[in-house]
Simulated assay, not measured.
Amino acid sequence: MDLCVTIKGVSFLLQTGMGILGNVVVILAYAHILFSDRRLQPVDIILCHLAFVNLLLLLTRCVPLTMTVFGLKDLLNDPGCKVVIYAYRVSRSLSVCITCMLSVFQAVTLSPAAGPRWSSLKARLPSLLLPTFVGLWCLNMAVCIAAPMFTTAPRNGTVPAFTLNLGYCHVDFRDSLSYVINGASLTVRDFAFVGLMLWSSSYILLVLHRHSRKVRNIRRAQGGGMESRAAKMVITLVVLYVVFFGIDNVIWIYMLTVAKVSPDVADMKIFFSSSYAFLSPYFIISSNKKVKSRITCTASDQEQQSVDTQESNDKV
């Protein structure tokens, strides 16, 4: 194994391992909050769902790629490739949709009430979460249904033109028209959600800037500081996503302009497109006091239990 392959393998291994660990910790922390407090705040529900989707993304994209880089051959057959690629496409689409949903939800929550209809919408937001989740899942599962049609297990011999060689699977579009249409449709969909995400985040910044004194009064009277911290966390998540989204799409646009894509270019795209799923849970842990307190509390309990066990052994 040469140096470049080793560096690539170690990079994917670290990204995959740390990303899975971080998202699992976030999900378990929210499960602990739900078990102890019997309820989750709407923002917490969205963040927990985002961690689950990012975990699914890492499992279906980075795990098989990491195994392939380290030399595991014939990892998946045709049906396995179709399932894995379809699950990845759905989870990637949901990642941008739920990040957008988080930004829009926070923008509506922070916006000043302007009439009874707007106040009624803000009051109904928590009850709209479940229908929105169901709608996003159904929408993205329907949009991504074509992905398995072009997916096959790797074949011996030359890789055909207009084929994305992922190592563990091939996505063969057969002709330039289907190749460009598929790439353009995904890009347009992603840009639409990212545009809405940026608009809502800009609105959040505008509200926080223009009404800083009012927000301070709300913080003293009703705990508005928590909403302000949540808004800043959402904005940072959006910025994080947009950075990796931009790099991912620059590579994707390049891939659309060539008939045969180098496996190294495809691997680079996968690395950057998965970086948000890898980094976002650690930002949630560091910026969300409830999640951090649950992790700290669990660690303290385990340390105390270890001390008690040691003392019992010493007495024996």
Rank of each mutant, 00 (worst) to 15 (best):
L40P: 03
Q41S: 10
V43G: 05
V43Y: 12
D44K: 04
D44L: 12
I45V: 15
I46E: 05
I46A: 06
I46T: 07
L47C: 12
C48A: 14
C48L: 13
L50R: 04
L50T: 10
L50M: 13
L50V: 14
L50W: 14
A51N: 02
F52R: 11
F52D: 06
N54A: 06
N54P: 09
L55E: 00
L55C: 00
L56H: 09
L57I: 09
T60P: 01
T60Y: 01
T60H: 01
R61L: 14
R61M: 14
R61H: 09
C62F: 03
C62Y: 01
C62V: 08
P64Q: 01
L65E: 07
L65S: 04
L65N: 04
L65F: 15
L65A: 08
T66M: 05
T66E: 05
M67G: 02
M67D: 03
T68P: 08
T68S: 12
V69I: 15
V69E: 09
F70K: 03
F70Y: 03
F70G: 02
L72H: 12
K73V: 14
K73I: 12
D74E: 10
D74F: 11
D74V: 14
D74A: 10
L75A: 04
L75H: 03
L75G: 04
N77T: 08
D78E: 11
P79L: 03
G80H: 02
C81T: 00
C81P: 01
C81A: 00
C81E: 00
V83N: 09
V83A: 10
V84T: 13
I85N: 08
I85M: 13
I85F: 13
Y86E: 02
Y86V: 12
Y86D: 00
A87D: 07
Y88Q: 07
Y88A: 07
R89K: 11
R89E: 12
V90F: 00
V90Q: 00
S91G: 01
R92C: 13
S93Q: 03
S93K: 02
L94R: 05
L94I: 04
S95Q: 10
V96T: 11
V96D: 07
V96H: 11
V96S: 09
T99Y: 14
T99C: 06
C100N: 05
M101A: 14
L102R: 09
L102D: 04
S103P: 02
V104Q: 09
V104N: 03
V104C: 13
F105Q: 04
A107E: 07
